[in-house]
Nucleic acid binder design. Structure first.
Length: 653
DNA sequence: CATTTTAAT
DNA sequence: CTGCATTAAAATG
């Protein structure tokens, strides 16, 4: 799946088959039926399997009706209906405009499209081998490891809403994102398990450990999905992509007891589509060959493409585009009807083009930090203020963790009717404290209350964008890191020039090494004692909060684990120097990091002992996350050497 | 142009 | 009928 962290499968996800038949309902008149057709289709979702041919259509109808009947009347449903009507209107406008366009001369648009196609064709890159790996019903699979007796029973993981369910439950029409009570109607025997994020994260790390052996710079797209570029691996091991992936999947299964599906193709977009072709526990290869790709896309429903959601799908369908191949014959309409960007995106789809750059998730930059929560309908202004205050405090914690401030503040509100509103303000200075967050958001809330008297909320959220880093020179400066660029500072990117080091108020200048790396014996003893004490008591000031995974939410940016098998490549340099104690260490990344962890713990203690504020301590971050993530992404202080992995041989592995 | 909303994942 | 994070574009003024 994509960017944001998502539960392995989200309501919007189209991991499975789009049920084309969801829209027919012979029991109603065409007119009456059409009222709810699109909505039923939407509610039905994408998870009915293609297995079982004959009965499938009937089953789909039954499932569709059950969901519909269970849902209708609820506020949520009403809102969905309203949204659906709005969309229908919008589509009517588009169709109207299309009729108008038909009276005009579109040769200019046609030429533009043809030029674009020609130009994109020239840039087609078939040299890379990209793999998309997707764990099968991940949460359910992990739970099943602990409860093997569930294997043949329909079960799901989640609370009020199914986060995922096993394939047995899917046969009944259950799917991720479905309300539990609806799922129960479809499948009364459904077993519902609570979420266990710690377990899933731990298991995900095991899987990633294996992935790292095939591409250390693989990209985690979510907890259970990843992209790899195995071009180099295949070359070095003289393997065919299919065999390499087969082997990788077997290795994953052997080491983690989790099955994964994989897609192998020339770029990420295609690989993602392919990983769904033989799911579960299968793989699919689309050859790196233009004709094969064009043929593949020609019959592919656009909805299968990452980036096409229910809205665009419907728009395209009504225009007449049912497959990516159809895009070509409508190319002159796309820009005027759907806009420049959608047009370009669709041409890419038609051609089967996508990115071939795969990079670790931690190298992406965070653009905003926010938090929101749902609660029982609330309209009392005093309570709302309390809630806002609380939200501000939550956000402050998250921003502390993220070590940033922000210049714009967004208030999000969902009414009891499920209508969503957001309002934002640009604040005079970058803020991060609960006080600031509260005081600047309060007027917005007040204004909203004024706009709609007696508004009843079910959700409130705060979010901060236009981020600026507040990272202090502690850990980072240690290693001579300079701050990552912020959004505002996009110009000077990551290039390590000596000037930018001085620019940021001098905070980022390198610390004198001797002072940093030396600890007198007495202090050392104190520190060691404190580390032990802290570890036993789980002292919050020293134990970084990030390690408490219950509190973590949202996109988890976990650094890639180092490849587990040391492989055959011999490291040129025999020793890596610890940047803290300066002593040479064995060139084993895991041990090296362990050693650094130890040194860092001492350093943390020293900070705590010397300086006063304990709240600074967590700034070190989890040893496993913050520190290593920097290791992973930035210059690895010369050693081990980081090279562009696409071209050069990798350093560890 | 900046701000707000919407769609998507 | 959750709950997050993040992007990007369209709509709006």
């Amino acid at each position: 799946m994509t960017a944001p962290t998502q539960p392995p499968e989200t309501p919007g996800a189209r991991t499975e088959e789009p049920p084309e038949t969801g829209r027919e309902d012979p029991t109603q008149t065409p007119k009456a039926a059409s009222e709810h057709d699109t909505l039923k289709y939407h509610l039905l979702g994408p998870s009915l399997t293609k297995a079982g041919q004959d009965s499938v259509d009937q089953k789909k109808v039954r499932v569709s009706e059950t969901i519909f009947n269970a849902s209708k009347g609820s506020k949520f449903f009403n809102r969905e209906e309203a949204k659906d009507r709005i969309l229908t209107q919008k589509i009517d406008q588009i169709l109207q405009k299309k009729r108008h366009l038909d009276t005009l001369d579109l040769s200019r648009e046609l030429r533009h499209a043809d030029n674009l196609v020609a130009q994109l064709e020239l840039s087609r890159d078939l040299s890379q081998c990209i793999v998309h790996v997707d764990c099968d019903a991940f949460y359910a699979a992990v739970e099943q490891l602990d409860r093997p007796e569930l294997k043949d029973l329909p079960f799901a993981v989640g609370g009020g809403v199914l986060t995922t369910c096993n394939y047995v439950a899917r046969k009944y029409g259950c799917r991720s994102g479905m309300a539990s009570f609806v799922a129960k109607k479809l499948c009364p025997d459904l077993v519902l398990l609570k979420l266990n994020f710690d377990k899933y994260n731990a298991k995900a790390q095991e899987v990633r450990q294996v992935l790292a052996g095939y591409d250390p710079r693989f990209e985690s797209a979510s907890i259970d999905e990843a992209y790899l570029n195995i071009t180099q691996y295949c070359a070095e091991n003289d393997m065919q992509p299919e065999d390499a992936v087969q082997q990788m999947r077997r290795e994953i299964h052997e080491k983690t007891r989790i099955t994964v599906s994989a897609g192998i193709a020339a770029n990420a977009k295609l690989a993602k589509i392919c990983s769904n072709m033989n799911k579960p526990n299968g793989q699919f290869l689309l050859p790196n060959n233009r004709a094969a790709i064009m043929k593949f896309m020609a019959s592919l429903p656009p909805r299968k493409v990452n980036g096409v959601g229910r809205v665009l799908e419907r728009q395209l369908s009504e225009i007449g585009i049912k497959t990516c191949g159809d895009i070509y014959q409508y190319r002159q309409y796309l820009s005027p009807l759907l806009g420049e960007k959608a047009y370009e995106f669709l041409i890419h789809c038609y051609l089967g083009l996508g990115r071939t750059r795969i990079q670790p998730a931690e190298e992406y930059e965070r653009k905003s930090v926010g938090t929101e929560s749902t609660f029982q309908d609330m309209s009392d202004p005093v309570k709302l203020r309390e809630k806002l205050r609380w939200t501000a405090e939550e956000l402050e914690k998250d921003m502390k963790k993220a070590e940033c401030k922000g210049r714009t503040l967004v208030l999000k509100v969902k009414l009891h009717t499920f209508e969503v509103y957001t309002r934002q303000v640009v604040v005079p200075k970058a803020i991060c404290t609960a006080d600031d967050l509260y005081t600047y958001s309060l007027p917005i809330l007040a204004k909203l209350e004024q706009e709609m008297a007696g508004m009843k909320l079910r959700l409130m959220g705060l979010r901060v964008t236009q981020l600026e880093s507040t990272k202090k020179p502690d850990t980072m400066a240690f290693f001579g890191f300079r701050p990552r660029k912020t959004t505002a500072d996009a110009s000077s990117a990551t290039a390590p020039d000596p000037e930018s080091a001085k620019r940021d108020n001098g905070v980022w200048e390198q610390w004198p090494e001797e002072e940093m790396y030396q600890l007198d014996d007495e202090l050392q003893a104190q520190a060691d004692a404190a580390v032990q004490a802290a570890q036993q008591e789980g002292d919050a000031a020293i134990t970084p909060r990030g390690s408490d995974s219950r509190r973590r939410h949202g996109k988890e940016i976990v650094p890639n684990p180092s490849p587990c098998k040391p492989d055959t490549k011999v490291e040129e340099e025999t020793w890596w120097d610890c940047p803290i104690c300066n002593r040479p260490q064995t060139p084993d990344e895991r041990r090296f990091n362990d050693h650094i962890d130890l040194c860092l713990s001492r350093q943390t203690i020293r900070d705590v002992v010397h300086e006063e504020v304990p709240s600074r301590a967590p700034a070190l971050g989890t040893p496993e996350t913050t520190r290593k993530s920097k290791f992973g992404s930035e210059k690895k202080r010369g050693r081990p050497p980081t090279v562009d992995p696409r071209q050069k041989k990798l350093c560890f592995g």
